[in-house]
Design a protein around this nucleic acid. Structure first.
Length: 580
RNA sequence: GGGCGUGUAGCAUAGCCUGGAUAAUGCACUGGCCUCCUAAGCCAGGGACCGCGGGUUCGAAUCCUGCCGCGCCCGCCA
């Protein structure tokens, strides 16, 4: 309805000025109506004009309403109530707006001035299991990448995998103990948690092993060829495993996006040099640190530093993140840096960004955004764990989603069989997991509940997918092809058609609103409204029974609804089966 | 102790940026609707002192402030 606002304001200007209301004093009062019941699309509260006009708000609203009525002829009908001027889009205006979307594959979404944006997301660890924590980063990051690309930006996906650092000493030694041919073979590592835990345990209990591990770390860092080769074996096994999960999840990440910590190791000394050059580095107990001052104090009230190089000469993650910033801004030419990482790291990123800014690694033209997200909780409000109290393996969770979706299909639609059913089960199961994650405000913790996300009712992926499937079913019965509707005229005769038309017009605004704050849930909310309006329309407006004009109009509405859903869900990384 | 975040029907959430009319949605609950395009649906109904108290305003879930509850973070892990 932002179109209605922008079209109405210029037409309202003359009549309103002729009432003695000054230019610039009323325009921003015009906005979307907040009252429900379809009373109005756009409203203008007149209460703030009251002291200036020395009249009651309702009198002013009455005056404005009758003054602007003529100039909005054909666009909106005007009324007033309780001191509000209310504009309701006319059927003519709605129809013509909707008609302009019939042949538009973008459903009205415009391109933005293109920026180069690095999106850092997923970031699993080599030789470790992927768990639900990676799920959120991967799913949210992927949705954001898709939306940004759709808006015309150049997006550089960065999968900042944990592939470097002290744990690799013990991991490599453990690999050798097991026998590299054993591990590197077909079987690979079947249980990363077990592999990691075994290594850890030996490190803690076996002095000889611990000693070997330490010297292995030194060899790794000095880039000893044989050590690098062994390290690469672990990386390769893990990468294969990540790709399996990504493929199951249906995300965009590929090997080309891998940019592990190891990739930045040569920039780490440069970070130190540059911070040192601009005089930001302090020495504290042998460690190189940056004191930012301000609100950064520790428990004792002493200044709290950003650790750049440890007393033993090792670097840690702040340094690595600073190296990333240098690389992304200076080598890749990124304008914006996005980090899809959990909320607990908020302070870390604030401090890193502040250091980067102070040191001139980034300037005013760059935006650094921590796209934070909350934890995954179980229905008891605790961090999600398996029955044994361990982190839930992501693959197990995804497999269970598919199994559950499959059993729903067998219950609700037993006619669907074979590979089509298998595909649908995947789309529904994975879609449900992704949508439940994306559909609520990412910054808050979210509760993982199988029954809710797969319930096929409410604000869930299956509900939206179901709407889409119903529309596909209508088309397959109609004998009309989806792309033959370009000349359709939209005829709005029922409240349900009008409501659906309004929702369809809201698509581009929803996408923009969603991308503006990097909040996928805003798009979800819209898609649910579309779907819900469609369901009401579907009950009342029989599509295939009307005369040709009505049928053509309703088919076009169906097509646009289906496209909104598949395009919208597609931007979230969720697929839409044609039958389910 | 300091910093950051959060609190909306029984449950789960949207709305808060940018203040407006009767606080929106889903689940669950109650009652209706399949000779008709997928009832995995639709329609109707009940259910909320928007954590508590102040303040700003013609008007506060929304902005400011103080409390309370919960969560996270606070130097050599990432």
């Amino acid at each position: 309805m932002r179109d209605l606002v922008s079209e109405a304001i210029p037409r309202m200007a003359n009549p309103i000025h002729s009432l003695g209301i000054e230019e610039g004093s009323w325009e921003e009062l015009v906005g979307p109506s907040t009252v429900g019941g379809g009373m109005a699309d756009v409203a203008m509260p007149c209460h703030s004009l009251s002291p200036i006009m020395k009249k009651s708000p309702s009198e002013i609203a009455d005056n404005i309403a009758s003054a602007v009525s003529d100039s909005l002829e054909g666009i909106a009908t005007v009324s007033s109530l309780n001191g509000f001027v209310n504009l309701s889009a006319t059927d003519t205006w709605l129809s013509s707006k909707v008609e302009s979307l019939i042949g538009d594959p973008r459903m009205g979404v415009l391109l933005e001035d293109s920026r180069t944006i690095a999106v850092d997301y997923s970031a699993p660890n080599v030789a470790k299991e992927m768990h639900v924590g990676h799920l959120r980063s991967t799913v949210i990051g992927d949705a954001i990448v898709r939306m940004l690309e759709f808006k015309g930006h150049r997006v550089i996906k960065e999968n900042h995998v944990g592939d470097w650092g002290t744990p690799f000493g013990m991991l490599i030694e453990h690999l050798l103990d097991l026998g590299e041919s054993e591990v590197a073979g077909e079987k690979g590592i079947s249980d990363f948690d077990h592999f990691y835990k075994q290594a850890r345990q030996k490190f803690d209990e076996d002095q000889d092993f611990a000693e070997r591990s330490r010297s292995r770390v030194v060899k790794l860092q000095s880039e000893d060829n044989e050590t690098l080769r062994l390290w690469q074996i672990l990386v390769d096994i893990s990468t294969r495993y990540f790709n399996e999960v990504y493929s199951m999840l249906g995300v965009l990440l590929t090997d080309d996006d891998l940019m592990g910590e190891s990739a930045y190791r040569h920039i780490l000394p440069i970070v130190v040099d540059r911070l040192s050059e601009c005089g930001m580095l302090d020495n504290s107990d042998g460690a190189e640190v940056v004191f930012l001052g301000g609100k950064w104090v520790n428990r004792e009230g002493d200044p709290f530093p950003v650790m750049i190089r440890k007393a033993d000469g090792g670097y840690n993650y702040s340094t690595s993140d600073l190296a990333c910033i240098i690389d992304r801004v200076e080598r890749l030419g990124c304008d914006d840096l996005l980090y899809v990482v959990g909320t607990p790291q908020k302070q870390h990123f604030e401090m890193v960004f502040e250091v980067a800014s102070n040191a001139g690694f980034i300037d005013q033209s760059n935006r650094t955004i921590h796209v934070n997200f909350g934890s995954v909780l179980d229905s008891g409000g605790q961090m999600l764990k398996s029955r044994k109290g361990q982190n839930v393996k992501l693959v197990d969770l995804l497999r269970e989603a598919i199994v559950r979706a499959d059993s729903s299909i067998s219950e609700k639609n037993p006619e669907l069989t074979g590979s089509e059913r298998e595909e649908a089960a995947k789309m529904i199961g994975i879609g449900a997991v992704k949508y439940s994650d994306l559909s609520s405000d990412r910054t808050k913790d979210y509760v993982f509940e199988w029954d809710r996300m797969l319930s096929f009712e409410g604000n869930t992926a299956p509900y939206l997918q179901y709407s889409h499937a119903r529309i596909c079913s209508i088309f397959s019965r109609s004998g009309v092809s989806r792309n033959s509707l370009t000349d359709s005229r939209i005829i709005l005769t029922t409240p349900e058609e009008r409501a659906l038309a309004r929702e369809l017009l809201g698509f581009s605004q929803a996408v923009d609103y969603s991308i503006e704050g990097l909040y996928p849930h805003r798009l979800c909310t819209h898609l649910h409204s579309v779907s819900s309006s469609f369901a009401s329309f579907y009950e009342v407006c029989h599509v295939l029974d009307g005369d040709d004009a009505v049928k053509s109009s309703r088919l076009a509405l169906c097509d646009m609804t289906a496209r909104s859903l598949s395009l919208g869900l597609g931007l979230l990384g969720i697929e839409t089966p044609e039958r389910m």
